[in-house]
Design a protein around this nucleic acid. Sequence first.
DNA 1: TACATTTGCATCGTGAACGATATAAATAGA
DNA 2: TCTATTTATATCGTTCACGATGCAAATGTA
Lengths: 146, 146
Amino acid sequence: MHAELQLKNQICFRLYTAARLITQAYTPVLTALGITYPQYLVLMVLWEDDNLPVNDIARRLVLETNTVTPLLQRMEKQGIVVRKKGEQDKRQQIVSLTDKGKQLEEEAYAHIPESMRNQLSACPLNLDDYMNLANELDSIINTLKK
Amino acid sequence: MHAELQLKNQICFRLYTAARLITQAYTPVLTALGITYPQYLVLMVLWEDDNLPVNDIARRLVLETNTVTPLLQRMEKQGIVVRKKGEQDKRQQIVSLTDKGKQLEEEAYAHIPESMRNQLSACPLNLDDYMNLANELDSIINTLKK
DNA sequence: TACATTTGCATCGTGAACGATATAAATAGA
DNA sequence: TCTATTTATATCGTTCACGATGCAAATGTA
């Protein structure tokens, strides 16, 4: 019985579980908007900076392009984004929001923050705890991101 | 531009990213052992308590059986576990470690904690920070787990 | 300029997650 | 006891992640 190999001592298992559960908490609102959580992440990037090549989106989400490309293909099929070949660099695919993709921002703003506040209202963490958590997660992310 | 909808303000995105990156950090060692991270989680459960029904394993990992069943089927195919129909309750599948599955505990103990310590050695968090992080994650998990 | 290397994206295969559905065994209630 | 409900597990379809590979455009170098 090695303490290092017990679930209850694993930060990674906690991260894995917390990430799954909080993504599940997003699912009902996102489903009402017709999108998934990774698609929501792509939209947050594009709401902040539209007309980005696949590479930039992947870099901001700390994902590989072989994850993002199929994601964008599904989003294009749903009419949320369009992809156009880059003009200076013809290898690039420039991803842009459609009107539908832009409208989703207002719907997201209207429902998502409130829904998440409700679902986490019973959580004993206060604002300082969340900022602390954010900093600790950033430390781990920056250490492991190459 | 809604601050609530920016990536840099999202705890969920941080959790999602940190979980992915730390799982990736496990991958090289686990690949050498011939297993994946979710399979390692199943093994940690069985190393602590062998001969469990699918349901118990799923509950401890906060997963559904429709995730765990295929996982166990792959592990059985690799000769790490065996599944036998329950004797009192014939609906149950009792999952047990094979010799190979038991041996993996020593190999895991020999390599995994050291590898993770190395990879996180540049991380500025100290032991108190990690315990704090564990508590904060437990708060979120317990709030969202039904 | 000619060729090698790098870069940007796409495709393929595998293993998760998970909602929805199915099936058999166990349990509850009339 | 007989039927209805619940429980334990399995199956199916879709979407991610991600390693490996492929290809064309761009860049570097002799």
